[in-house]
């Protein structure tokens, strides 16, 4: 058998440049490394977790070009030129993201290990909600959005609640904006 080179990172590593949480980053990624390995082992962004090896649990969920995907199934070299968001990029200027706040307050994170992935799925839903014409918050839809993220602690009840509370904030904001623009239209 052929022994892998001890310093596997050096083998034909490819320079990959992408937007990571809003900032450009370049890494030398071995071609057979997945995104989760590059994030955790090269970039020290250990917020993205690995739970199952092969796309069965959702703990490694990150957003690529906005869409939640499994970092353990995504070859790192294929994010060249794309935008990657991880849990570390949620929240702005030291303020936690509304989801991080509601998860913390409502006890939606127990052990917290599935949570980063859960947050990435939920944040995509919130962003999507914000673009809708007449958004409504629906627990069934939230459950479906989180359908690829296994949680073993909570029974999902408080997770769905926390997402719903944050989602309602989005909806209220949208309604306020709509009312303001209505007012403007009336003027």
């Amino acid at each position: 058998m052929t022994a892998p080179s001890p310093n596997h990172a050096a083998r034909a590593a490819t320079l990959v440049t992408f937007q990571l949480n809003g900032e450009p980053v370049t890494v030398a990624a071995p071609p057979h490394w997945t995104l989760v390995e590059v994030l955790r082992y090269q970039l020290n962004l250990t917020g993205t977790k690995q739970g199952c090896d092969k796309g069965d649990c959702g703990a490694c969920t990150v957003r690529v070009d906005g869409a939640p995907v499994l970092a353990c199934m995504t070859l790192a070299v294929l994010v060249q030129g794309r935008s990657v968001e991880t849990v570390e990029g949620l929240g702005v200027g030291g303020e936690p993201h509304p989801l991080q706040r509601t998860f913390a307050e409502l006890g939606a994170a127990q052990c917290g290990f599935c949570t980063p992935g859960m947050l990435m799925s939920a944040s995509a839903y919130l962003d999507d909600l914000a673009t809708r014409d007449a958004p409504t918050v629906d627990a069934v839809e939230i459950s479906a959005v989180l359908g690829g993220n296994l949680c073993r602690c909570t029974g999902y009840t408080k997770i769905v609640q926390a997402v719903a509370v944050a989602a309602r904030e989005v909806v209220e904001r949208a309604q306020t904006l709509a009312e303001m623009s209505n007012d403007e239209a009336m003027l």
């Binding site: 250990t46 849990v87 913390a104 994170a109 917290g112």
Partner: peptide
């Protein structure tokens, strides 16, 4: 009514589990 005192650390990806 309160959540876990240490959950925000985990929710922001700052907290370090063993493999981290």
């Amino acid at each position: 009514r309160h959540g876990r005192i240490d959950s925000l650390e985990l929710l922001t990806g700052v907290g370090k589990y063993t493999d981290d």
